[in-house]
Design a binder for these strands. Structure first.
Length: 974
RNA sequence: GGAGGCGUGGUGGAGUGGUUAAACACACCGGACUUAUAAUCCGGCAUAGUCGUGAUGGGCUAUCGAGGGUUCGAAUCCCUCCGCCUCCGCCA
């Protein structure tokens, strides 16, 4: 074609790039948002609007943002942005969980390394005078431990933890922002904030005053060498050889009759208070010589062999009799009973488990159930001691007092002493080495012990609290609905809440010891809340017990004087769980001003992973119910976990083991694909199930992204000369094709809104991507090229289509803006006369666009014809008789029943739909068969519009043009 | 140990009683266009058995983890089994 004709076409123009370049472009836009204070602008623009509060569950301030954490944040951002888009005032206050073991663990690990390095450097040779009297190795060891304890003092650890937490808050904040998540990033809530800690303590004070909190013993892992309680994460399992023993317990009132127990920890026998049996097992009495031994029938042969019973008879022992049986402790002055327990197994031992509630979790549970004392006669140094849990005469014998449990070369004083006692009392049936997996301290590598320690608890069954919590659960909407079972199960089965931790990095429990009894008092706690709000909780660690006591002691205090302070901190679940008080009730921007009662502060939505049913959802519910009198949320949304291409979960620990090559930080994906593609991938996943992340999937989503971007680009590029104020065509003046697409789009809008309202983002993804691929790309965009390019620029038909495109591009940008935050904002700027404001400031209230009954029917007919016609065209193309569809003439033969009575305009719509130059409808009176024929079009190809027309060359001035183009050219070239 | 989820074509993923052998996309193959051009459009594309031969096309049957059941009719409802995965068990 000659250039002059090409210049008369309205070819698309736009600077909206086809290539997204997200990785480079997104950070620029982000910067723009931040310097314009976009988040603040949005909040300002929604002032006075109905409020919608999504309360952020605080991620742990540790490490880079994991892809799973990113998923969570992005889902939250979808909700917040969607609600904002629909006109709500939806503030987002991000939070961080700052205290807790993982940080303290990491920090103390680092500090220990530092200490080791310093120690090695500064070590001095021992003085000669010491060498004579003391074991030099021991002296050095003791000195080292003292120094280390000093180096790792709570104050030092806390300082370093703070530094560490703050560092990672910054890192994560940057990474969250990069994902396009908008929020009040400059004013997040941090569980380490003075104000937060203070409000947390005030909530705690309420709960204490209401009588929920009590002190009791509970077994924890304890490392004798490190003299510290260990969390499960600090325990590693290793093979260990234990001195296992078979011991006989004399049955009361039945001479020469014994229950046989087996244990791998003889040192726990002094704490034995009961035995457990399994009521589903069959027990027998084995008569060996004069003695009778009761044990599980299935293990009798094994036990007999070990104990050297060559000649014995067995008689069944009815399980019911255990209910009344009592036995004498082999070397303590007390008696025990037998209790049924499911955990008694039939594969090792004797069918009886020796129960020491102070030394095992299962034992503890059984002890609680039956009201046994939690007797744990072991001190911090791992030596036997006397305690207050039993009357003096029932305590362990003097010979054991002071004996150490600490093992050296597989032996311990305590075990040896117990074994000696058992032999002395003729109670030891057999002893052997037993190799098994046993928990060890991760640092000292020593076997850990289970030891009951005083802990603070929240009583769950206080004042019918459990029932009230379950009732409250029913008032909350759980999505997906199985979540309600999860949380109910968690609340139903949970034991009392152990809220104290023997840890430094946390909120101190402001309790005092008066020498014997603990003082935990609501008024004093509130006093400390005020002090901490001013000075921070380091105050507790810096001041002495007497200083603190004198500060908060009520004037009218009549009780004992405190002599020491608690060293425990609150379980971090109390930290994050009290956010209802510290955040929801505090932040002005989170109040539902138009509501009353609890609804003023209650959050509309919590949205976390399914593990939080037992975690944050539960701790928040329980604390808010106990302290505020209501659940903190109205709806709880849950998502599954990220798994990799092999459907295995992606975990941090896995990477720590090394050799894990699948990227699992959010940053890795953002750097490769850009945040919008990552966000689109999140939207594409049905988060209620496991979410699969892999290069392949993200890539695929990238294809969809390109399709959407291209559709937007096509629309923008054809709006370059469109001014909505001047050129918009009224609904009833729009051409059929434009009315059709707007009708279809209106349906899409309704579906998308439903999907968003139900938090089903993957339907948004599916519906939109399908619409883009089918209705837009394959049909509408293809069909309208001709009129857009070749009609006179200001013709009604072209303006009609531009009106359609304008509405489409605005609607698409709006509906996608919660997902494609960067791309839609970019495209928004290119929409004519859009005022330069961000898409994120706009609202989306789609106006329904309904087609008439007749239109609906006609388009159904036209689309029924299309596949047959396209097939026909394809056949001709294969036969090389035509190239593109415009080279063809299509002849349709069918009854009126099939084709309907088409108006000229409808017929023209069909021609456009098929993209052919000519369409002939020849009606047969009878039959409902539709026949389609495609032939080479009549006339000649117009140089300008490529249509084949019979009037090409009719105008001598433009011998290569059709009549329509001649008219257009005359208009275009003045 | 407890709780929950999943199993559809080469892949992702729609589909919960018939209009679905199965939307849409990706991958792959073939074609068109050069006026969305690092784009766009069109077509093809499951496996097995079987019939048959007017032959590079057609008919029938089975198959949506396996088996059984309900129903006129099932990927879709019920049961059993197999396989996979996740969460929880005081780590957050």
């Amino acid at each position: 074609m000659t250039t002059s004709y090409k210049d008369t076409l309205n070819l698309p123009r736009t600077d909206f790039a086809m290539k997204a370049g997200l990785v480079e472009r997104e950070p620029q836009r982000l910067q723009q948002w931040e310097s314009n204070k976009l988040y603040q602008q949005i909040q300002e623009s929604r002032r006075g609007a109905p409020r919608f509060v999504l309360h952020d569950g605080p991620p742990f301030a540790n490490g880079d943002v994991h892809i799973g954490t990113a998923l969570n944040k992005i889902l939250k951002d979808f909700v917040v942005k969607y609600k904002t888009l629909r006109g709500f005032s939806a503030p987002y206050i991000p939070g961080w969980d700052c205290h807790g073991l993982p940080i303290e663990f990491k920090v103390s690990q680092e500090m220990r390394k530092e200490f080791e390095a310093q120690w090695t450097q500064s070590r001095k040779p021992l003085q000669d005078s010491w060498k004579d009297e003391h074991d030099p190795v021991l002296v050095e060891e003791v000195t080292k431990q003292l120094k280390q304890k000093e180096f790792l003092s709570p104050q030092n650890i806390r300082a370093r933890c703070l530094e560490n937490a703050q560092h990672f808050i910054d890192v994560q904040r940057r990474q969250f922002r990069r994902l396009g998540v908008l929020g009040d990033w400059d004013n997040p809530y941090l569980t380490l904030d003075k104000k937060y800690e203070a409000d947390e303590l005030r909530l705690f004070a309420d709960i204490v005053e209401k009588g929920f909190v009590y002190r009791a013993k509970k077994p924890v892992y304890w490392c004798i060498v490190c003299r510290t309680a260990l969390a499960e994460a600090e325990v590693e399992y290793a093979e260990h050889v234990s001195q296992s023993v078979f011991v006989k317990f004399r049955v009361v009132g039945q001479p020469k009759t014994f229950i046989v127990i087996w244990t791998t920890t003889p040192w726990t026998l002094p704490a034995n208070l009961a035995v457990a049996y399994n009521k589903d097992l069959q027990y027998v009495t084995a008569k060996v010589g004069e003695e009778n031994f009761i044990l599980f029938r299935g293990l009798l042969p094994a036990v007999a062999e070990k104990c050297g019973w060559t000649n014995y008879t067995e008689t069944p022992f009815p399980t019911e009799q255990f209910a009344t049986i009592e036995y004498d402790h082999p070397f303590c002055q007390r008696r025990g009973k037998a209790y049924a327990a499911d955990f008694v197994t039939s594969d090792t031992g004797t069918g009886f488990v020796h129960i020491a509630p102070g030394h095992g979790l299962e034992d503890y549970g059984l002890g609680l159930k039956h009201g046994l004392p939690i007797y744990s006669p072991v001190g911090d140094r791992g030596c036997f001691v006397h305690t207050n849990d039993l009357p003096a005469e029932q305590q362990l014998p003097e010979t054991l007092f002071g004996k150490s449990i600490l093992e050296k070369n597989g032996k311990s004083e305590a075990n040896d002493a117990v074994l000696a006692l058992l032999r002395e009392k003729n109670s030891l049936l057999h002893q052997e080495n037993y190799s098994h997996s046993y928990p060890h301290c991760w640092r000292s590598k020593n076997p850990v012990i289970f030891r009951a320690m005083d802990q603070w608890f929240i009583k769950i069954d206080h004042a019918q609290f459990r029932e009230r919590a379950l009732a409250e659960i029913d008032r909350v909407s759980w999505i997906p609905d199985w979540g309600v079972n999860r949380i109910k199960g968690a609340v139903q089965s949970r034991p009392d809440w152990c809220i104290s931790r023997q840890r430094a990095w946390g909120v101190p429990i402001p309790a005092f010891l008066d020498g014997e009894k603990w003082i935990l008092n609501g008024e004093m706690i509130r006093h400390f809340a005020d002090l901490f709000e001013q000075h921070g909780s380091n105050f507790w660690f810096e001041k002495s017990a007497s200083e603190l006591w004198s500060l908060v002691k009520p004037r009218d205090w009549k009780g004992e004087q405190a002599v020491s302070k608690s060293n425990d901190t609150l379980d971090v679940w109390i930290d994050s769980g009290s956010s209802s008080r510290s955040v929801l009730k505090q932040r002005k921007e989170l109040q539902h001003d138009q509501k009353t009662g609890d609804e003023i502060w209650q959050a509309d939505v919590y949205l976390e992973g399914s593990d939080q049913h037992r975690g944050w959802f539960q701790s928040s519910l329980l604390l808010s119910l106990a302290g505020n009198g209501a659940a903190p949320f109205k709806t709880v949304l849950t998502h599954g976990f990220i798994v990799d291409a092999d459907r295995e979960k992606i975990s941090k620990s896995k990477q720590a083991q090394g050799g894990y090559d699948k990227p699992q930080t959010a940053e890795a994906y953002v750097k490769k694909y850009g945040a919008d593609v990552v966000r689109l991938w999140v939207a594409s996943q049905d988060y209620r199930n496991d979410i699969v992340v892999s290069e392949e999937r993200v890539n695929k989503v990238g294809e969809t992204y390109r399709a959407i971007r291209n559709a937007l680009r096509y629309q923008l590029s054809n709006l370059y000369d469109f001014n909505p104020a001047q050129h918009t065509v009224a609904d009833d003046q729009l051409t059929g094709l434009d009315r059709w697409i707007l009708g279809a789009f209106s349906k899409l809008e309704a579906e998308v809104i439903t999907a968003y309202d139900q938090y089903e983002f993957h339907f948004v993804y599916q519906k939109v991507s399908q619409f883009v691929a089918v209705e837009l790309s394959a049909v509408y965009h293809d069909a309208i090229k001709d009129r857009l390019y070749t009609d006179p620029a200001n013709s009604r038909r072209r303006r009609s289509t531009q009106t359609g495109l304008y509405r489409l591009v605005r609607g698409l940008c709006a509906m996608l803006s919660p997902v494609l935050v960067f791309t839609t904002d970019e495209a928004w700027e290119f929409i004519p006369e859009n005022g330069g404001a961000s898409v994120h400031l706009s609202t989306w209230q789609p106006r329904p666009f309904a087609l008439t009954e007749r239109e609906e029917q006609t388009w159904r007919r036209l689309f029924a014809i299309r596949p047959a016609a396209l097939a026909c065209l394809e056949k001709e193309r294969q036969a090389k008789s035509i190239g593109k569809a415009l080279d063809a003439k299509v002849i349709l033969d069918g009854s009126a029943q099939v084709l309907g009575e088409l108006t000229d305009e409808e017929k023209e719509s069909l021609r456009e739909l098929l993209n052919v130059s000519q369409l002939i409808l020849s009606r047969q009176p009878e039959g409902n068969e539709l026949t389609v024929e495609a032939v080479k079009a009549d006339g000649q190809k117009c140089e300008r519009c490529w249509h084949w027309e019979t009037d090409v060359g009719a105008e001598p001035e433009h011998p290569l043009l059709c009549g329509r183009c001649v008219a257009a050219v005359r208009l275009a070239v003045p």
